[in-house]
């Protein structure tokens, strides 16, 4: 499958997901559902890799994407802000998307998947809460939490349909994307919960920046190694390395910055 076909399949799935959660007021007053293409790519990875893929599996993949959108909406609720109309509707957007994914799985009579995803949401919520509990954590513990937040739902989907062998690679790549976003936030002067926790552990934003740069280099090296252990075709491998996790090595970045 070439690059264009991969893009086209992801777009088609994105349109389906957006259609499933469409709601006029939410569309007007909130940022709308976040359906990240990288996540859609990983949900579709078994299909791109030529594995058995049915309508039911694709429908389940869409519901996982909707769960991500639901949880992401709730991540957008400001920690201490008062209730603006946008904030109020963002809370409801998350709840509405949760109802939709539940209904979609109920319509598929996939009750087991409802249960598995619920268990995954519990784990993700627990890990997200761990960034608010004020307990001291090592960077390794924070890293494990980030990994689980990013991949628990996807890993549940893979496990349910027997695609577990993609989990290690997806964990590396989704963690990479998350840390890249965090680095951009840090360099752009904004603070996220993860950055705040890293700052608390590492005691200085500069140390956090260095830790993130090294982490990205490490993850990239691991991705390059891991990806070769799969039997992906050239186009798919290329797509993953250059479209999903394009990397600028720390050394290159430092040289460019002068």
């Amino acid at each position: 499958m070439n690059e264009q076909l991969i893009h086209s399949k992801i777009t088609s799935m994105e349109i389906d997901v957006l259609r499933a959660v469409k709601q006029r007021t939410l569309e007007k007053f909130t940022e709308g559902p976040s359906v990240e293409r990288a996540r859609l790519f990983f949900l579709l990875l078994p299909y791109f890799d030529g594995k058995h893929w049915s309508g039911e599996i694709e429908a389940s993949a869409k519901t996982v994407s909707i769960v991500y959108a639901a949880l992401h909406a709730h991540d957008q609720v400001k920690e201490n802000a008062s209730a603006t109309k946008k904030q109020q509707l963002t809370v409801l957007a998350g709840d509405f998307y949760s109802g939709i994914y539940y209904q979609m799985l109920a319509n598929l009579n996939n009750i087991t998947m409802i249960q598995r995803l619920a268990t995954a949401i519990i784990k993700v919520s627990e890990k997200k809460a761990s960034f608010h509990d004020g307990l001291d954590r090592t960077t390794a513990e924070l890293d494990r939490s980030v990994q689980q937040i990013e991949t628990e739902l996807l890993a549940t989907f893979y496990n349910f349909y027997g695609f577990d062998h993609y989990t290690p690679l997806a964990t590396l790549m989704l963690s990479y994307i998350r840390y890249k976003d965090e680095l951009e936030c840090l360099q752009g002067g904004s603070e996220t919960r993860i950055i705040r926790s890293l700052n608390e552990t590492l005691q200085h934003p500069l140390h956090t920046e260095r830790w993130l740069l090294e982490k990205l280099d490490n993850l990239h090296d691991q991705i390059s190694l891991t990806i070769n252990s799969y039997n992906f075709n050239y186009d798919l491998k290329n797509f993953m390395l250059h479209q999903i996790t394009p990397h600028q090595h720390r050394a290159e970045q430092l040289t460019r910055e002068g």
Binding site: A70, L71, H74, D75, V77, K78, E79, N80, A81, V91, G94, D95, S98, I121, S125, K128, A129, H132, R193
Partner: peptide, 9 residues
């Protein structure tokens, strides 16, 4: 608010 969101979820 964030803790309330995670608690509800």
């Amino acid at each position: 608010n964030s803790v309330a969101m995670y608690t509800g979820d």
